[in-house]
Write a protein that binds this DNA or RNA. Structure first.
Lengths: 341, 341
DNA sequence: ACAACTGGCTTAAACGTTTAATTATGCGTG
DNA sequence: CACGCATAATTAAACGTTTAAGCCAGTTGT
């Protein structure tokens, strides 16, 4: 098999303990002996067995991360990039990432399992929601974790989140500046944390501009292209004086659906009807026309989340455990023509 | 800390060994004793410590998978889905996936490290290429792995791959059927395994149709949207009798670039110029017009690759260790108008 | 009636580390 | 010159499992 510490000890003609001391710098060793040990280590290509070390230290140097559900034909570019950056940040701290899948019906089960079999030292959570069972459970067990996303306000846990409310606010204000007044909103059914926050941004920006959004402007739909398409159809079917001239979508996916309807039905996106999205999908800039969207600083978020978890793992108090980062509005062709009636 | 086998033994008033025997069914135990043990296990909520078990068994029940390099603003929907499905398949076999990042300059280093510290029992490789150092190394070390993708023909290792040559062949034949004769190809610089195979498909299909492709029809470009855009510009600038009426792209990304150029310069994609891609990006169906592309059966591939690795890990001979699956041509608006001059 | 087996349990060694406790050595000090 | 005291090494216990080996009582075969 692999070289073990015993082999090194033999080769260097010292005891096993001495080798360990040299390697971990955990006890004084004479220069002569140290040299002999390091020499043997080098010559034999010895690397300590992680499993044994972990057993002794009762840690695993593993961070668990649950995949979002990837449905066929669906992608979540933002989260994909998040995982990658997170893995990178974790490795910089000598941790590895264990990616697992969570069953939709009992998400907590897998977390429990990983904890009880001591597979991981901590978790990173994403796609959090209100009353998130996973968070409740982890707080309960006092098990280390950090989240990308908020949950119930009364729960005290470390997270980084994107300020969706402010983001949508910016999008609406941008459209107002262009001259739009009748601005529709493609939103998810109310109840989701993220969705409600973003939708709040729409309401607030409109209120500040002194505009009362008509109920017909608000589409509550699922986060799929098809629904965006259908919603746009309904919006464009409104009588002329009520028909929106701009559509703010809470996600790129729905925005793409809307653009698709507009484009195939004689509305020039960007000129006749402005459209904005959220997430800044890597493809957004290459759509026809390119889609205005809100960009989340994912790399920064990944690094911050890992940073937080590292602090928790060291039993240290977290200086600032609730971070809200701002998205950036990427203005593109789908919304860059000044508008007036 | 957590409940250990000792606690269970105490609670059930038997020896540690007996508990282990009951749990692993590895020795005869009387029904009475078995009941007592299982009872205690249930009551205490005992789960064996994986690290200790792994140390004893000298296995980790972990499979290593290296992230493809995710550049900012880039995604690889196909591989993302592959990882997810792979994790799912691995878990069905009581394995977990350790996702790590490989440094571009020394990809083999991380593999070595994970092996020598016994972090993983085997690897799944993706994004393989000719003379792939990682494969060479793993074969050398006789370390278990299976790959999504081929490499040097003389190397004997388990893989599943998509038949890119046949795929592109199908795309070209589809265009020929529509009536196209002047068919251009957006290809990568020669040298990559996948790229050369796909390109071969183009050449072969053209040859079979008795057409000699003009050198000006062949664009050797990078796998980015921008390059596809520029290549389309050059193709459309050719004199009328030489200008292609269809463009076969070896990837969706380049195809999208080409579509973008055509659309913004008065060429109607699908009607004036047909375009096809490869990979069937989840967004492909929602582009304007929807992009004809070759779909890879990723889910099936992920399951097969894991299946192979499981066999290797059990030291069994692999019945059929080289699998080539066929892509499916998804015909959409970017190429569905009969064409004639 | 005694050896040989067998079922059902326990004891203890092993996996490869880390580290507390211990020992050996040389040195300055009273 | 013995004493205590650093210093540098070793020995052995521990982490939580699995499992080979051992033990005992009861049964079977000759």
């Amino acid at each position: 098999m692999a070289i073990k510490i015993k082999d090194v000890a033999q080769a260097a003609e010292v005891s096993i303990a001495t080798v360990s001391y040299v390697l971990n710098n955990s006890a004084p060793v004479s220069n002569e002996t140290r040299r002999r040990v390091l020499d043997a280590v080098e010559r034999l290509g010895y690397r300590p067995n992680i499993t044994a070390r972990n057993l002794k230290a009762s840690e695993t140097r593993m961070i668990g991360y649950a995949w979002h559900n990837v449905l066929p034909g669906e992608t979540n570019a933002v989260l994909d990039r998040f995982i990658y950056q997170m893995a990178l940040a974790a490795e910089a701290n000598r941790y590895h990432v264990l990616t697992f899948t969570q069953s939709p019906d009992d998400p907590v089960a897998t977390y429990d399992e990983l904890i009880r079999t001591s597979r991981v030292d901590g978790f990173i959570l994403a796609g959090t929601d209100r009353n998130d069972e996973r968070i409740r459970r982890l707080i309960d067990l006092d098990f280390p974790f950090a989240a990308f996303g908020r949950s119930n306000a009364e729960w005290d846990f470390p997270y980084v989140d994107v300020d969706g409310k402010v983001g949508i606010c910016m999008a609406v204000e941008h459209l107002l500046t262009l001259g739009h007044r009748r601005i529709a909103c493609l939103a998810w059914p109310s109840g989701s944390l993220n969705g409600d926050a973003r939708f709040d941004g729409y309401l607030q920006a409109m209120r500040q501009a002194g505009i009362v959004p008509k109920p017909t402007w608000i589409a509550r739909i699922g986060n799929v292209v098809r629904d965006g398409f259908e919603a746009a159809r309904r919006l464009m079917a409104l009588p002329a004086h009520e028909r929106p001239t701009a559509i703010v979508s809470l996600s790129d996916v729905m925005a793409i659906g809307a653009m698709s309807y507009l484009d195939t039905n004689g509305f020039r996106v960007g000129a006749d009807v402005a459209v904005t999205g959220f997430d800044d999908d890597p493809m957004a800039g290459y759509l026809r026309p390119p889609l205005t969207s809100l960009h989340q600083p994912i790399d920064e978020i990944a690094v911050k989340v890992i940073e937080m978890l590292m602090v928790v793992l060291n039993d240290q108090p977290i200086p600032d455990q609730n971070i809200l980062v701002q998205p950036t509005l990427m203005i593109r062709g789908s919304s860059n023509y000044p508008f007036s009636e």
